[in-house]
Deep mutational scan, measured.
Amino acid sequence: MGFKLLSKLLVYLTASIMAIASPLAFSVDSSGEYPTVSEIPVGEVRLYQIADGVWSHIATQSFDGAVYPSNGLIVRDGDELLLIDTAWGAKNTAALLAEIEKQIGLPVTRAVSTHFHDDRVGGVDVLRAAGVATYASPSTRRLAEVEGNEIPTHSLEGLSSSGDAVRFGPVELFYPGAAHSTDNLIVYVPSASVLYGGCAIYELSRTSAGNVADADLAEWPTSIERIQQHYPEAQFVIPGHGLPGGLDLLKHTTNVVKAHTNRSVVE
């Protein structure tokens, strides 16, 4: 069995187990497998329904001669939608809004960016022009300005110390501490036991640490421990890039980060 097929099978099995364990909360999309990078042309966006009122959005972007996937989250909030992270750029984010209108038909009224990198804030200006209120932590807003990236308009308070959590509509926002970046936030959907790890969490097929220019490698494993301790009931975990899975993604990420750190020390 090929690795790609095995990865998709694991996603399907995880979703099936969740649907059985929580039949009222989960209505997993039966329309197909989780979209992969090879299936999404740059400039297009796919939506994948995880649970009743919960979707991931998947886009792709060219970077350094390669094409990478990027995940975000959409959560229903009454007759409105909360968006977590842009679709990595203005063109993708405009396509995301169009796809949401086509498939869901509810307005996106608020959006949260989970850290300051372009795959999370690139497209904020498109959201703002569409009347979406954009939010991020003060740290993310400051770092985005320093980096020359787009800056969300509103500040999220109460997320300055490791372990801080605040309720934001249908989700809980959690600051686990520094990891992929010093400002990275985690998003949890309690009604569906869905954990969105953003770039602080890796997919299972990833074996290298990737972009760690703004990471705190020493603190990252401790931050992941905080996530595990705060959300032990999480059933569906979405990484910032690639295929979702279960809580095993947290341990896998820790292993990859520690291996990278150990290699760096040896070198």
Score class of each variant (00 low, 15 high):
Thr93Met: 13
Tyr12Thr: 14
His57Val: 10
Gly242Ile: 01
Glu267Phe: 15
Ala90Gln: 06
Ala66Gly: 07
Thr93Val: 12
Asp79Asn: 13
Glu80Asn: 09
Pro176Trp: 00
Ala59Val: 09
Gly78Met: 06
Pro170Ala: 05
Arg226Val: 12
Met1Thr: 07
Gly72Ser: 09
Ser160Val: 11
Tyr12Asn: 05
Ser191Trp: 05
Ile100Ser: 08
Asp64Lys: 14
Ala51Cys: 05
Asp248Gly: 07
Ser193Phe: 03
Met18Ile: 03
Ala259Lys: 13
Lys102Glu: 10
Val187Thr: 14
Gly43Val: 08
Val256Cys: 13
Lys91Asp: 12
Tyr196Thr: 01
His241Glu: 00
Val11Cys: 13
Leu82Cys: 09
Asp29Thr: 15
Ala25Val: 06
Ala215Val: 10
Leu250Asp: 02
Leu250Thr: 14
Ala130Phe: 12
Tyr12Leu: 13
Asn262Tyr: 06
Thr114Ala: 01
Gln49Tyr: 06
Met18Phe: 03
Asn184Ile: 01
Trp55Ala: 06
Ser208Gly: 09
Ala259Thr: 11
Arg120Asn: 14
Asp52Lys: 05
Ala213Pro: 04
Met1Val: 11
Ser16Val: 05
Asn149Arg: 11
Leu127His: 00
Tyr68Phe: 14
Leu97Asn: 02
Arg263Gly: 09
Ala98His: 14
Asn92Trp: 11
Thr14Phe: 02
Ser56Glu: 11
Leu247His: 15
Ala130Lys: 15
Leu247Tyr: 06
Tyr48Glu: 09
Ala144Asn: 13
Phe63Val: 07
Lys91Trp: 12
Trp220Asn: 01
Ala94Arg: 10
Asn71Gln: 07
Ala111Ser: 11
Leu243Met: 03
Val75Pro: 00
Leu82Ser: 06
Ile151Glu: 11
Ile238Ala: 12
Asn71Cys: 03
Ser162Gly: 07
Gly122Cys: 03
Glu101Ile: 07
Thr114Met: 02
Gly53Thr: 15
Ser7Ala: 08
Tyr12Gly: 08
Thr134Ser: 10
Arg167Phe: 14
Leu81Gly: 08
Lys4Asp: 12
Pro232Arg: 10
Phe3Asn: 03
Ile238Ser: 07
Gly197Phe: 00
Ala130Pro: 04
Gly210Cys: 14
His180Ile: 00
Gly246Glu: 06
Ala259Gln: 12
His154Trp: 09
Leu10His: 11
Lys91Met: 10
Val112Thr: 11
Leu5Glu: 07
Pro23Met: 00
Ile58Val: 07
Ala59Ile: 14
Leu204His: 14
Pro41His: 04
Asp118Trp: 06
Met18Trp: 08
Thr86Lys: 01
Ser31Ala: 13
Arg46Ser: 13
Leu97Gly: 04
Gly131His: 03
Arg263Gln: 14
Gly163Pro: 04
Asn184Lys: 01
Asn262Thr: 05
Glu147Val: 13
Val265Thr: 13
Val256Gly: 09
Asp79Glu: 12
Glu157Gln: 08
Leu81His: 01
Gly240Cys: 01
Thr36Cys: 04
Asp29Ala: 08
